[in-house]
Amino acid sequence: MTGSRDHGPLPGLLLALTIGTGLVDAVSYLTLGHVFVANMTGNIVFFGFAVAGAGGVSWSATLVAVGCFGAGAFVGGRHGSTRTTHRGRLLAVTCGAQCVLVAVTALLAAFADPTRRGTQLAMVALPAVAMGAQNAVVRRLAVPDLTTTVLTLTAAGLFADRTSNQVRLRRVASILAMMTGALVGGLLLRHGRIAAPLWAAAAVLAGCAVTADRLRRRDTAESWS
């Protein structure tokens, strides 16, 4: 059903969110102790490494990320449970809340001591909540091949399935969007401050929130509600 459903501008907005995911995961993985705030598959593996005492992985940061991601997903799932809510409004409200969480994280990175353990855990917790909510709401939006936080099934489907060029293009675009976010995040960290990728991610989220809200108010928005 979701393959033939009209998704309006949602694919483009979700690709933007995928770029944002790459940005925040660049910060968490490269500066906060090899932990992801969006990719929970990686964190489960990292927690196994941490318990084994291998790889210098922080078990506390990993547990905080998984727990806060779950909390965000729980809240996002409750928010997205109302079937009468327009998908544009659902996305706009979620992106707005995420923007606040990521912006607060950027403020911590800019004005607190990012080498302190408490600051680092807070910088893991806040975006993990944001990414958990995003993941839950994106599931509710049900746009195929655009999960925004994980690409394993997308990459497998790209090579394993016989599909139309449109589907293949969407999958490739999703992979490139995540890669772009990670690339930009890495460059900003290399040549700037820790907060820079977080401000960029907050800007992406703010843009998605405003765009989704405006587009869902148009007369044609009913077709992708």
Rank of each mutant, 00 (worst) to 15 (best):
V143H: 12
G192M: 07
R218Y: 10
T2L: 01
T84A: 15
P114C: 13
L121S: 06
G132C: 09
G70D: 00
P127K: 07
R87W: 03
H7F: 02
V104F: 15
L188A: 10
P114N: 13
D219W: 08
S60W: 10
A112E: 02
R216A: 11
V27P: 01
A128F: 09
T41G: 03
T119Q: 09
D161H: 14
T180S: 12
T163S: 13
T21R: 04
A155K: 06
A73Q: 03
Q134C: 08
T62E: 02
R117S: 15
C68V: 03
N43P: 06
C68W: 10
A203Q: 09
R116K: 05
S58P: 05
G55R: 11
T21H: 01
V104M: 08
A110N: 02
H34P: 02
A209R: 06
G48M: 10
A209S: 15
V184N: 07
M40I: 06
V137R: 07
V184I: 14
L141E: 10
T148C: 05
H79S: 04
R87E: 10
A26I: 07
A16W: 11
L10Q: 05
T115Q: 15
A202I: 02
A200Y: 10
A202Y: 04
F49A: 04
V100T: 10
V204L: 11
P11F: 07
A196R: 03
G12S: 14
V27R: 06
R218M: 06
G67H: 07
G88A: 13
G70S: 13
T82M: 09
T41Q: 09
V138A: 11
A54Y: 02
L151M: 12
W224N: 09
V102N: 12
H7Y: 03
W199V: 12
N43V: 04
T82P: 05
R140Y: 01
S60P: 00
V37W: 01
V66D: 03
Q98M: 15
E222R: 15
L158E: 14
T148S: 13
A92L: 06
P197D: 11
R89I: 11
S28Y: 04
N43G: 14
R171Q: 08
Y29H: 13
V167S: 13
L121P: 05
V184A: 10
L187A: 14
V24L: 06
L121C: 01
V143M: 05
V143A: 10
V150A: 10
F74K: 00
M1G: 15
C95S: 14
V150L: 06
C95W: 08
R78L: 14
T154H: 04
L146K: 05
V37M: 06
P144R: 12
S225V: 02
L176N: 07
D161I: 00
R116A: 15
L189E: 04
S58E: 03
V204W: 00
R89V: 15
A125Y: 02
N135E: 06
G157C: 11
L90Y: 00
T31D: 11
L158D: 15
A173M: 09
A182G: 15
H86R: 05
V172C: 14
G12E: 00
P11Y: 03
C99K: 01
A61G: 15
G77M: 08
